[in-house]
Amino acid sequence: MSRLLPLFAFLLLVGLFGFGIWWNTQHDQHEIVSPLIDKPAPAFSLPVLGEPTRTVDKASLLGKPYFLNVFASWCIECVHEHPMLMTDVKQLGLPIVGFNYKDDPQAATAWLAEHGNPFDVIVADRDGRTGIDFGVYAAPETFLVDAKGVIRYKRIGPITPEVLDKEIRPALAALAKEAP
């Protein structure tokens, strides 16, 4: 029996390492689970891109669930995500609020002219301060905010067809169930 002990110890280690490898294929190491999920979205008031005199705040968006998509013209992954926003996400029927993060307004406008504009309204966070309140640390990121202004879901990284089916659609189904 005691001769077999090293073998068991070895198998235990193999199992542990195997679990570690499996875990890393299932989880994105760069993803920080947001502490804001199921908490009220932070209050904000930001100018609309291209119309600096008009502002949009949290209160004006209440009453209906919406997506808040963090994007920027400097963001490479946003280009890859954009077709999804233009088609599949748009077809979900929720308003998409663009959150133009730390971007030059002219560059952002040109970027949207080139790639298309899926957003119902775009707010500009030039210095990234509102982004900090939302726990944004990169782009793209997408929040799902419900009618009461509570953050229900957050995607860090681009929305892919897989993410849409496995995460976003179920999150929306959960929202629909609550609605009277």
Binding site: Q29, I32, K102, G128, I132, Y137, A138
Partner: peptide
């Protein structure tokens, strides 16, 4: 939060810059 193995003091990521300012 961005580069994950660097401190806020060491990192050159834009978010580290913003958080240092904060």
């Amino acid at each position: 939060p961005m580069c994950q193995n660097e401190t806020l003091a060491d990192s050159n990521a834009p978010i580290a810059h913003d958080l240092r300012r904060q």
